[in-house]
């Protein structure tokens, strides 16, 4: 079976003049399709860097990265952008919605921008996704008029718009109150279970990790633990 993610010997060294800092020291990781994985680690452990590399926002210094069977670490910038657009979904700690657009337009944006417009199909899918995240009554609301939790749910709908192979979430509940955070987590679990979407969630929150099916811990640039929640 093709894996959602295969990382082999991922290293990352940041250089600042003569000074070199090795943040990732050779990470090997496999994620199967349909997994809901939590990536834990203290500040400076390298989890955000690893997530950025998996999200093709940063190039590794060494190692190989394969997503859904495609080797992606060697791609050109244009190809990486195209891959991010078609095969990856992103949810960030801050929703990063486009404030001048409605909820529906925000959700449709990743598909509409490369296509040159919002087609009837895109509009229908965006409406379906917003209905699914419980915002059917906010479809044409400006993004600025939504609450923090609603904005994050729009962000999840946006991440799902292009039916990605892998959804990367960086502290998706880090900026929400408990109630809103639970709702967002419920939603991600639901999408994971019903659609078989693969999630890699970077978090500090043990509560979030506890609701995932897999738990990965990074310590000082190395994968220290890697097991399913049931194995603990």
């Amino acid at each position: 079976m093709t894996r959602a993610l295969e990382a082999r010997g991922i290293e990352k060294v940041f250089r600042n003049g003569e000074e070199e800092t090795q943040v990732l020291k050779g990470i090997d990781l496999d994620l199967d399709k349909g997994e809901l994985a939590a990536l834990l680690g203290a500040s400076g452990s390298g989890k955000s860097t690893f997530l950025s590399i998996v999200g093709l926002l940063l190039r590794p210094t060494a190692g190989a990265l394969t997503i859904s069977g495609d080797r992606v670490d060697m791609l050109s910038e244009a190809k990486r952008a195209q891959f991010r657009n078609r095969r990856l979904g992103f949810v960030f700690q801050f929703h990063h919605l486009l404030p001048d657009f409605t909820a529906m337009e925000n959700v449709a944006f990743p598909a509409a921008a490369p296509a040159g417009g919002i087609s009837r199909e895109m509009r229908a899918r965006a409406r379906d996704l917003l209905t699914r995240v419980g915002l059917e009554d906010r479809i044409d609301y400006p993004a600025t008029s939504l609450s923090g939790g609603q904005k994050q749910r729009v962000a999840i709908a946006r991440a799902l718009m292009n039916r990605p192979d892998l959804i990367i979430a960086d502290e998706p509940t880090g900026n929400l109150d408990r109630q809103a955070a639970d709702r967002v987590l419920d939603l991600m679990r639901e999408v994971n279970q019903e659609d078989g979407a693969t999630f890699l969630i970077c978090t500090h929150d043990e509560g979030v990790a506890a609701r995932c099916t897999r738990r990965l811990t990074l310590i000082d640039g190395l994968l220290a633990s890697n097991h399913s929640v049931g194995e603990v």
Partner: peptide, 16 residues
Amino acid sequence: RSEVGIMRAFGVPSSF
């Protein structure tokens, strides 16, 4: 910047 950054993260072409 952050809006443009998020567009770039989504893989929106730089020409757009």
